[in-house]
Write a protein that binds this DNA or RNA. Structure first.
Lengths: 237, 237
DNA sequence: ATTGACATGTGATGCACATCACACAGCTGC
DNA sequence: GCAGCTGTGTGATGTGCATCACATGTCAAT
C-alpha cells in the first residue's frame, strides 16, 4: 500500500486506499495532475446502474469506494456474474479501447464513489502517456486472465462440486492470505450470486456448500468462509 | 489490407498480409525499425509446442503464417480450446504484462512461422513507444472480450444446441461476411475441436450439428459451413 | 486393393443437476 | 407483536447429456 505522491490529492480521493496502487498513484506528477484535472467525482447510490450491456460507451471510470457488480444476461433471464469490482478497478476500459458498446452491465451494490472520465479524454490521455497505456494494458491483462479462468471453470469441471472448489481456491488466492494453512475468504455473496458465477442453480450451490461443510472441508460463519482442508478441494479438481 | 510502410520489410515478413494491420505496420518508421531489429524469425513445424501452460514466460510472439492452437487442460485430461491463433495474433502478451507463467498451451497445428521477441525486449519496447503499448492494450481488450463471450456461452446457454448456435453466429461475425444473407464460415475444425470449445462431448456436437442440418438451418460441405436460417439459430438463444 | 488412422454417425444406459415446491430462518420496519 | 422480504435448507421428479460401445466413412500411405 503506497501513498499517493501528491499529498493534496491523497486527501481528496479515496482511490489512494485502493488495492492496485499501480493504477494512477504511480504516474509522474505532471501526468497525474493532467489525469486528475480531467476527471470528475461521481456518487452512485446503491442499486444505480453506471452503464448497461449494449449501451454505447461514453466514459471510463475508476472505482474509489464501494462494490460494483458487473454482469451479463441472456434473453431468457439468466445472468452471469462476471465480477464484483472493488476500489482501484477500472470500468469501461475494454469498451473504450475496442470502441465497442459495453459488454457488461455495471450496477452499484453498495453506495459507491467513482472517478469518471469522458471516453475521448481518457483515450487521448493514454495516447500521450505511456504509463497510462501500460496500466491499461496490465489491467486488461488481468481481466483477460480471470475471464479465461472463468471459462475454464465452466468448461472443464463437469461437476458442480468441482466448480465450487475451483472458485473457492481462486478466491482464496485472490484474497491475499495465500500460503496460509487455513485461508479465510470474506464472501459477501449469496448462494444466488455464486450460482450465477458458476452457471448453476441456487439450490445446487446450497447443497454443494453444505456437503463441503459436513465433510469438514470448509466452515462458514457469516460472510467468513474458512478452508479447512485445501487438499480436499484440490481433489475435486 | 494496408501495405507495410517499409518496402524492404514487406518482402521479409509475411506479417504484412495479416488481418490485423494495426499491430505493427502502423508503427512510425523509427519505432518500426527498432521493433524489427529486436525480433527473430522462427519456423514452427506442425505439432510443435511454442509454450506450455504453467511455463515461465520468456518471449512474446507474433504469428506470421499458419495457425496456432491455444488450449488449457485440467488434471483429468479434459481440454478447453481457447482460440485458434491466426497471422497477426500476438501470443504470450498477457503473461508478459502480468509477469506470470503462461496461462495456455500454444501448439502449431500447421507448419507455422512467427516473429519472436525476448520478453524483456518486448516490455522495454512498449515502455518506450506509446503506439506499442496501445496496440498491446487493444489486443488484450479483444482477447478479454472473446474470453468473456466464451464464459457467457458456457454459463448462459444451458443446452448444447444453444451453445453451438451461439458459437456459429460468433464465427460468422468474426468471419467478416457479416450482414451477408447466408454467412459462410470456413471451419477447419473437427467435432472434437468444437466439443472442447463448448465444454461438451464429441457425440453431442455431432448430433447437434446434424439436427441443424436436417432442419435446414445450416449446410455443410467440407470445411465450408453455411448458415441458411440465421433466425433459427438466434431462436436457440 | 489393403491397412491403418482418424473423423463422423447413432443406439442404449444411467446419473447429475435444473426445476418445482414448500418450509424455515433472519432481519427490517412498523 | 406482525407482516414482508430475502436468504437458505431439502425433498421429489424429469431430462439432457456424458459415457460406453460399435458401425461407417474418408483419406493417405504402401
Amino acid at each position: 500500500m503506497q501513498m499517493c505522491p501528491m499529498s493534496t490529492h491523497t486527501e481528496n480521493c479515496l482511490l489512494c486506499k485502493a488495492r492496485k496502487p499501480g493504477w494512477f498513484c504511480n504516474l509522474a506528477p505532471q501526468a497525474l495532475a493532467e489525469y486528475d484535472a480531467m476527471s470528475s467525482h461521481v456518487m452512485l447510490p446503491m442499486g444505480s446502474i453506471l452503464f448497461a450491456e449494449g449501451q454505447a460507451a461514453r466514459s471510463v471510470s475508476v472505482v474509489c469506494e464501494g462494490r460494483i457488480k458487473l454482469s451479463r444476461s441472456s434473453q431468457d433471464g439468466k445472468t452471469l456474474l462476471v465480477k464484483i469490482a472493488k476500489p482501484g478497478d477500472v470500468l469501461g476500459l475494454s469498451a473504450a479501447l475496442s470502441k465497442t458498446p459495453h459488454e457488461v452491465t455495471a450496477q452499484a451494490i453498495e453506495h459507491a464513489q467513482i472517478k469518471n472520465f469522458q471516453q475521448s479524454d481518457f483515450l487521448h490521455f493514454i495516447q500521450r502517456h505511456v504509463e497510462g497505456s501500460l496500466h491499461a494494458a496490465e489491467s486488461l491483462s488481468n481481466e483477460y486472465r480471470t475471464a479465461l479462468s472463468d471459462a475454464c471453470r465452466l468448461a472443464l469441471s463437469s461437476s458442480i462440486a468441482g466448480r465450487v472448489a475451483h472458485l473457492l481456491l481462486e478466491l482464496a488466492i485472490e484474497g491475499g492470505t495465500d500460503q496460509d494453512v487455513h485461508p479465510e475468504i470474506h464472501m459477501p455473496l449469496t448462494h444466488e450470486d455464486l450460482a450465477s458465477m458458476l452457471g448453476s442453480s441456487r439450490e445446487s450451490i446450497t447443497r454443494a456448500l453444505n456437503n463441503l461443510r459436513r465433510s469438514g472441508t470448509i466452515s462458514i460463519r457469516g460472510t467468513k468462509l474458512t478452508i479447512l482442508k485445501k487438499e480436499s478441494l484440490e481433489m475435486l479438481l
